[in-house]
């Protein structure tokens, strides 16, 4: 049994700009913890997305680069090919990875780039005010789908990007977890660690999709937002290891 729970050294002890109850804060800590445990802090380069986590470099205490919207995996490909000795990972939201950047995502995965990709799925565009994202659930109300997302009227179905990427030959590890309870947070940590280990062992592209809450846009309390993940999101996005 672990006796003490201390903050990881790769995480700066500063206030974050995230809303109360936002899942980004938990995930930042898990990434920092995995990097500390694998002792790769000095050779890690993270790529921050465009979205709520755009200033993630203010919170992590290792090298982080910024990329244009959706192009994090393209930038990561360049860095990894020039500096193969470094551990390179991207941290992207659903609007960044699954919408505007889906071309970069699919082709990086298909090329089997030796990268780690952490995909934060909160079923909406958080930073821009709550528009429909590709991962928005059926019937979910957003400001661009005020009557709820209706696939029959042309809004489309929730995009299950993890399942899509899992059929590509270049992808070595795909897993989906949720941060809706402490057990889920522990599971997420194990997946992130495995994704980093895969890169160190040069196995190929690893993707970890994390179901995260956005209490402000969902207009719920932080506790109700976590319950909503367990009750609704998990039905659409089943958890577990999809490919390894």
């Amino acid at each position: 049994m672990k006796k003490s729970f201390l903050l990881p050294k790769s995480l700066k002890n500063v206030d974050t700009h995230y809303c109360s109850g936002c899942g980004h804060g938990i995930l930042h800590r898990l990434v920092a913890q995995a990097i500390d445990e694998l002792n790769i802090r000095e050779k890690t380069i993270g790529i921050a997305p465009v979205g709520c986590a755009v200033i993630a470099y203010n919170y992590w205490d290792f090298d982080v680069s910024e990329a244009a919207h959706g192009r994090a995996l393209a930038v990561a490909t360049g860095i990894k090919r020039c500096r193969p000795q470094n551990v390179v990972f991207t941290y992207q939201g659903d609007g960044d990875l699954a919408s505007i950047g889906i071309a970069e995502t699919l082709h990086s995965a298909n090329r089997g780039e030796n990268l780690t990709c952490i995909f934060v799925n909160n079923a909406c565009y958080g930073m821009t005010g709550g528009q429909m994202a590709p991962t928005t659930l059926r019937g979910q109300k957003t400001i661009t789908t005020p009557l709820g997302r209706d696939p029959e009227s042309g809004d489309g179905w929730p995009l299950k990007l993890s399942e899509v990427l899992s059929v590509l030959d270049g992808v070595c590890f795909v897993a989906r977890s949720s941060m809706s309870n402490p057990q889920g947070v522990k599971e997420t940590y194990q997946y992130i660690k495995r994704a980093f280990i895969n890169q160190i062992e040069k196995k190929g592209f690893s993707l970890v999709e994390v179901l995260s809450s956005c209490p402000t846009i969902w207009q719920k309390t932080p506790i109700d937002a976590l319950r909503w993940i367990e009750d609704e999101m998990v039905k659409e996005f089943p958890l577990g290891v999809i490919k390894e």
Binding site: K3, Y18, H24, I26, N181, P182
Partner: peptide
């Protein structure tokens, strides 16, 4: 009881638990 649930779920990393024998 040192379960660490609060540390795990805290979104702002403001909780630390120090265990002493």
């Amino acid at each position: 009881i040192g379960c660490g649930f609060c540390y795990l779920i805290c979104p702002d990393a403001c909780i630390e638990i120090h265990g002493k024998e």
